[in-house]
Simulated assay, not measured.
Amino acid sequence: MQPLTRNYQDYLIESLKDPSEAALYLWAILQEKDPEPELLLSALQDVAMALGQEKMSPEQLQEHLSRLKTVLDQPGSQGIYSLSSWLQSLGLTLSIIVNSEPNSTLESVAETVEVKL
Results as ranks from 00 to 15, higher is better:
residue 71 V to M: 04
residue 5 T to H: 10
residue 3 P to R: 12
residue 21 E to H: 13
residue 46 D to H: 15
residue 7 N to A: 12
residue 64 H to G: 02
residue 55 K to Q: 14
residue 110 A to I: 00
residue 111 E to L: 04
residue 11 Y to H: 07
residue 36 E to I: 02
residue 5 T to G: 03
residue 43 A to F: 05
residue 92 L to A: 05
residue 62 Q to I: 03
residue 37 P to H: 06
residue 56 M to K: 12
residue 13 I to F: 05
residue 97 I to C: 00
residue 80 I to C: 01
residue 36 E to F: 01
residue 46 D to F: 05
residue 114 E to T: 10
residue 21 E to A: 14
residue 71 V to K: 03
residue 86 W to T: 06
residue 110 A to H: 04
residue 81 Y to R: 13
residue 74 Q to A: 15
residue 70 T to F: 06
residue 30 L to R: 13
residue 1 M to H: 13
residue 13 I to N: 07
residue 75 P to L: 02
residue 67 R to N: 15
residue 113 V to M: 09
residue 86 W to P: 01
residue 72 L to F: 07
residue 24 L to G: 13
residue 14 E to Q: 14
residue 21 E to R: 12
residue 37 P to L: 03
residue 43 A to T: 03
residue 31 Q to C: 11
residue 96 I to D: 00
residue 95 S to N: 06
residue 104 S to G: 01
residue 113 V to N: 03
residue 46 D to K: 07
residue 47 V to C: 01
residue 59 E to G: 02
residue 30 L to Q: 15
residue 65 L to E: 07
residue 106 L to V: 10
residue 17 K to M: 13
residue 15 S to V: 07
residue 11 Y to Q: 11
residue 2 Q to D: 13
residue 20 S to K: 15
residue 112 T to P: 00
residue 77 S to K: 10
residue 88 Q to K: 14
residue 74 Q to F: 05
residue 62 Q to C: 01
residue 29 I to N: 08
residue 94 L to T: 11
